[in-house]
Structure formats: structure tokens, C-alpha cells
């Protein structure tokens, strides 16, 4: 096995401990605790439903559920990428100063947000039950879609975390890119809507590797159908390529980290 993944595997219990630490620290001293994690998608669900369903009258059935099915995995991606991209910079107390393995630094925010994502899923199920939406056997595909998101996210986070050490402007660009990506990903609209109204750009928007993943979650949690395997497969391929590139760049420049932090 390659050095990068071997280190991550070797320190899996350290990762476990640090993810637990992050979850604990986040809610230490707060009265509502985990409720805050649910408050975020809940708030967005309320506001976006008001905007898109009530004001703009998009006419989609059970729109709050559709929103949740997209926003919850999106939040994992956006927060994981934003925190992962600064993880090596934030870990400057450890990198090059202690034996703390820097590979671990990037994995931890990615997984912490992944746990928050997983903990929000029962809440989506609750909303589905409340709206009398039937979720079928395609639910078994959920871990597969989540795994593809994990691979894509870890690849991008590793890549940006490394670049950020040497070139901090990238972080500014990234925060704009994340906001833009939120609207370029089918969260507030469906891919079929794009295909009907603006077929010219449908194929361009489909290049976004997140599109297949988010649509996959929506198919499972909202439509009760199987995700589109073709676009999911495309996301998986892009994810693997980005992970390979990310870990290669990381390995190549890791020795210089301590000089630039």
C-alpha cells in the first residue's frame, strides 16, 4: 500500500479520537448540543422553502424534503472542504514540530463533518415520514453514494490543504468557489428542469462531479428511486483521480511544510 494511505490506516485510532474530540469540543459548554447541527439545515430548509416554493412557486411536491436531501450532503462537502483546506495551516503547532502525522490533519475535518452528516440522516427520514414520502430499497445505495462523496472530498481537501500552505490566496478563491458551486449543483432545482429549460448548459453543469452525488442522494431520499449510475460512476472516477492527485501533491511537498508555516 502507498505511504499516504498506510499512515492514515496506521493512525486510524488517533483519527477516531480526534473526530470524537472535535464533536465533543464543538458542543462543550453549549446547552443545546447536537441540536445546533440540525439547526443549520433546518434553518436553510425554512428559508429556501419560503423563497423557492412559496414566493417563486416552483410547484415541486414535498419541496422541503427535496431541499434537505441535497443540503445535508452539500453541507458535509462544503464544511469539510473549507475546514480541510486550512487544516495543515491550522495544524502549524504540530507540523514539523511533533511526531503528529500531518496526513491525519486533513482526514479529521472531512470525517467530523461526515459524522454530522450521518447524524442528520435520521432527521431527513423523520421529515419523509411526516410528509408521507415512501423511501424504498434504494436506501441500501446510500452508503455507496456517501463513500463516493468521501473520496471526492478527501481528494479535494488534501489538494487544497497542500496548496494553501504555499499560496494562501487560494483559500480566498476557494470560499467564493464553494458559494458558486452551491448554485451550480442541483440543490434548489432538479437536473431535469435544467434539461427542459436550458438544454444548452445541461451537459456543462453535468461536468460538476458533485451533481451526480447530490442527485444520487435526492433520488434515494426524495424520489425513492435508484441513483443514476452513469453520473454516479462519473463522480466516482473524478473522485478517485482527485484523490490520487491530492495525495501525490501532498507527498511531494510535505517536507517543505514546516518551512512555510
Amino acid at each position: 500500500m502507498n505511504q499516504y494511505f498506510a499512515t492514515i490506516y496506521r493512525y486510524r485510532w488517533l483519527i477516531y479520537e480526534l473526530v470524537l474530540r472535535n464533536l465533543r469540543l464543538r458542543y462543550r459548554g453549549s446547552i443545546l448540543g447536537f441540536t445546533w447541527t440540525l439547526a443549520n439545515p433546518l434553518l436553510f430548509m425554512g428559508v429556501y422553502t419560503l423563497v423557492f416554493s412559496v414566493i417563486l412557486k416552483n410547484g415541486m411536491e414535498h419541496f422541503p424534503l427535496y431541499l434537505l436531501a441535497g443540503i445535508v450532503p452539500w453541507t458535509w462537502f462544503a464544511s469539510g472542504l473549507a475546514q480541510g483546506a486550512t487544516s495543515i495551516l491550522d495544524g502549524r503547532l504540530y507540523v514539523g514540530k511533533t511526531l503528529f502525522p500531518s496526513e491525519v490533519l486533513v482526514v479529521v475535518p472531512v470525517l467530523t463533518n461526515g459524522v454530522n452528516f450521518a447524524l442528520s440522516l435520521p432527521f431527513i427520514a423523520l421529515v419523509a415520514v411526516a410528509l408521507h414520502v415512501h423511501i424504498g430499497w434504494s436506501l441500501l445505495m446510500l452508503p455507496v453514494v456517501a463513500l463516493i462523496e468521501l473520496i471526492l472530498l478527501q481528494g479535494l481537501a488534501t489538494l487544497f490543504a497542500t496548496i494553501n500552505v504555499f499560496y494562501r490566496d487560494v483559500n480566498e478563491l476557494l470560499s467564493y468557489a464553494i458559494t458558486a458551486l452551491m448554485f451550480l449543483t442541483p440543490i434548489f432545482y432538479t437536473q431535469s428542469l435544467v434539461a427542459i429549460h436550458v438544454p444548452q448548459i445541461a451537459s456543462i453543469l453535468a461536468l460538476n462531479p458533485l451533481a451526480g452525488i447530490i442527485s444520487g442522494f435526492q433520488a434515494i431520499l426524495y424520489g425513492g428511486t435508484m441513483p443514476d449510475l452513469k453520473s454516479l460512476g462519473y463522480s466516482a472516477v473524478v473522485g478517485f483521480v482527485l484523490l490520487a492527485v491530492g495525495q501525490w501533491v501532498f507527498e511531494r511537498y510535505r517536507e517543505s511544510f514546516s518551512e512555510f508555516l
Binding site: 488517533l14 469540543l25 503547532l93 511526531l99
Partner: peptide, 22 residues
Amino acid sequence: LGTGFHPDLTGRESARIELLAL
């Protein structure tokens, strides 16, 4: 310089993390 202990963690948690990192 740099024990790597996070100020918000307890001593027990810090020792755990340090041991796992070693």
C-alpha cells in the same frame, strides 16, 4: 516548545491523543 496539547481538551484526552500519535 510545542507539546501539541490543545488548550480546550482535558489532560486525560490530551494524554490519549499524544499516546496514539506516538
